[in-house]
Simulated assay, not measured.
Amino acid sequence: NNQDHSLLMGIFAAENVLTPGKHNLWDINSDSEYVEEASAEAATTAATQTRLSRRRQTLKVLQEFGRYLFTGGAATIVDVLVFSILIQSGIWYVFALGISYFLGLSTNFWLSRRFVFGVYWKNWFIQYGVFATVALNSLLANLGLLQLLINELGWHPTLSRLASAACVAMISFTGHKLYSFSSGEQQKLNLENISSN
């Protein structure tokens, strides 16, 4: 017996002195499971459920990221095609770039909203504005990273472009998940954090 069972047996023995036969002392500690073992098993079960929940969450994020890359690729194709058509039509390349970038951005917004995150704000115009802001920050990060890799580290431009695209894809995805496509309370917290900074 461990100490708590011994104490319980002593109490029951004292009660048996006052009322003979009230308790069967041999029933104490006859169960196969100690309280400590039950608590340990419950803690193990909770830890296992937490690990499974984290794995599911990680898998969900990876699936969203895969869909995000696909929709971003589709938006890039729209951007490049529109740019090529406008250039061939004789439109100045700066205007062509502005128009094609806007159409690519809009395509990316609608596809990401529908097929990646599935989060619809009450006011889609504000959501689009937040999306465009995150996208612009990602574009600036892309340009800065390209400058660093090419000018400072001497990387080849193509290799630099691939590395910056990979990094910025993760940054952009995270920004859109946290800000453009957050929902409910998370959206309020993010907007409060932006306004306080």
Score class of each variant (00 low, 15 high):
Ile87Leu: 08
Thr50Cys: 11
His156Asp: 10
Gly10Asp: 12
Phe95Asn: 13
Thr133Leu: 11
Asn108Phe: 00
Leu18Gln: 09
Leu148Tyr: 00
Ser100Glu: 02
Leu97Pro: 09
Gly154Cys: 02
Thr158Phe: 10
Gln186Leu: 02
Leu25Lys: 00
Phe117Trp: 03
Leu149Thr: 03
Leu136Lys: 09
Gly90Cys: 01
Lys122Trp: 13
Arg55Glu: 09
Gln186Ser: 05
Asp31Tyr: 14
Gly118His: 09
Asn24Cys: 04
Asn108Asp: 02
Val119Cys: 05
Met9Ala: 05
Gly98Lys: 03
Ser84Phe: 09
Leu105Gly: 05
Ser183Arg: 01
Val35Pro: 06
Val80Gly: 12
Gln49Leu: 11
Asn123Asp: 07
Tyr101Gln: 10
Gly175Ala: 00
Glu41Tyr: 12
Thr158Arg: 08
Arg114Thr: 06
Ala43His: 04
Leu69Ile: 04
Val134Asn: 05
Asn29Tyr: 09
Ala74Arg: 11
Trp26His: 13
Leu18Ala: 08
Arg55His: 13
Gly118Ala: 06
Ser100Trp: 08
Asn2Asp: 06
Val78Phe: 01
Arg54Met: 06
Asn193Thr: 14
Gly118Ser: 05
Gln88Ala: 13
Gly90Pro: 05
Ser89Trp: 12
Phe12Asn: 12
Ile77Asn: 10
Ala75Arg: 02
Ser39Gly: 15
Asn137Gly: 15
Leu191Arg: 13
Gln63Gly: 14
Ser112Ile: 01
Phe173His: 01
Ala163Trp: 01
Phe95Ala: 11
Tyr68Glu: 07
Trp110Thr: 08
Gly90Ile: 03
Gly73Glu: 04
Phe181Cys: 01
Leu52Val: 06
Asn190Val: 03
Ala75Trp: 01
Leu81Val: 03
Leu81Phe: 04
Ala43Pro: 00
Ser112Gln: 09
Gln187His: 09
Ile11Val: 15
Leu139Gly: 06
Gln3Phe: 10
Asn197Val: 08
Leu105Pro: 00
Arg55Met: 12
Phe173Asp: 00
Glu37Asp: 12
Val78Tyr: 05
Gln3Ser: 14
Arg55Asp: 11
Leu145Phe: 03
Leu86Lys: 10
His176Pro: 01
Ser39Val: 15
Ala13Gln: 02
Ser39Pro: 12
Phe102Cys: 07
Tyr120Ala: 13
Val94Ala: 10
Thr58Glu: 12
Arg56Trp: 14
Asn108Ser: 01
Trp26Ser: 11
Asn193Ser: 06
Thr107His: 01
Glu192Gly: 07
Asn197Trp: 14
Thr174Asn: 07
Lys22His: 06
Ser112Phe: 02
Asn193Glu: 12
Val61Gly: 08
Leu25Gly: 00
Val94Leu: 11
Phe131Ala: 08
Ile150Val: 03
Val116Thr: 03
Glu192Lys: 11
Glu41Val: 15
Ala47Gln: 00
Leu86His: 10
Phe131Cys: 09
Gly104Asn: 01
Glu185Tyr: 11
Gly21Phe: 05
Leu136Gly: 06
Arg54Val: 07
Glu185Arg: 07
Gln88Met: 10
Lys122Cys: 07
